[in-house]
C-alpha cells in the first residue's frame, strides 16, 4: 500500500485506517526513536505517544507540508528529542552521534525481522563511515545542514550533495 492509498483510507474514515497506518510505519518510527534513546522501554513509551499524537492531529496534515512519512518522522524525532531533554540528556544530545544506527545494527541482538536486518546490516556496513555519520545526523537526528557541517567539520555547501551521494549509495545497496 502506498502513502496515497493509506491517506485515502484515512480520509474515507475507514475504520481499519489506524491499523494500516501502524502496520506501515510503526517499525520505522520505532527504529528512529530507538536510535535516539537507545532504551527499548522508553522508546515504546515514546512510540505510543507519537501514534496518539499522529492520530489526534491527522486532520492538520496536508500534502503541502511534505510527504506524509516526513510529517510523522518529524513527530517521532521531536518526541524522542523531547524525551532526551526531559531526562536531562540535553548536554549529551549532540555527543550521542558517536553511537549511530550502524552500532545498533551491530550490537542489538533483538533487532526485529532478523533475516532482513542481518542482510541490511551487512549492506549498510558497506557505507562509507562519513555516510553513516551524515545519514545518522540528518535523517535520524534531524540536524540542520548547518549543525551537520559543524559536527562533521565539512563545508556547509557540501552537506547537501554529500548526503545525496550517501543516499545514492544506500539505494544502490538496498536496490531501491
Amino acid at each position: 500500500m502506498t502513502q496515497e492509498e493509506l491517506l485515502e483510507q484515512i480520509y474515507k474514515k475507514d475504520s481499519k485506517a489506524f491499523t494500516l497506518l501502524y502496520d506501515m510505519y510503526s517499525k520505522s518510527l520505532f527504529g528512529v526513536i530507538f536510535n535516539l534513546l537507545k532504551d527499548k522501554e522508553e522508546s515504546e513509551d515514546v512510540l505510543q505517544d507519537v501514534f496518539v499524537k499522529i492520530w489526534k492531529n491527522i486532520d492538520s496534515y496536508n500534502e503541502s507540508k511534505g510527504r506524509f512519512f516526513t510529517w510523522i518522522l518529524n513527530i517521532a524525532r521531536n518526541a524522542a528529542i523531547d524525551k532526551l531533554r526531559s531526562k536531562g540528556h540535553n548536554n549529551s544530545l549532540k555527543n550521542l552521534s558517536v553511537d549511530n544506527f550502524v552500532n545498533i545494527l551491530d550490537h542489538n541482538t533483538s533487532v526485529s525481522n532478523k533475516i532482513d536486518a542481518i542482510g541490511i546490516r551487512e549492506f549498510v556496513k558497506k557505507l562509507k563511515p562519513v555516510c553513516v555519520r551524515i545519514i545518522d545526523l540528518l535523517f535520524f537526528r534531524g540536524y540542520t545542514q548547518q549543525e551537520a557541517s559543524e559536527e562533521l567539520a565539512i563545508p556547509l555547501g557540501t552537506v547537501k550533495t554529500q548526503n545525496r551521494n550517501c543516499i545514492r549509495d544506500l539505494r544502490t545497496i538496498l536496490e531501491v
Binding site: S28, N35, V111, S112, I167, L170
Partner: peptide, 11 residues
C-alpha cells in the same frame, strides 16, 4: 530507502 533503513534498526 530511509523507511527500509530505519525499519531495519528497529528492535
Amino acid at each position: 530507502a530511509v523507511i527500509d533503513l530505519s525499519y531495519s534498526v528497529s528492535p
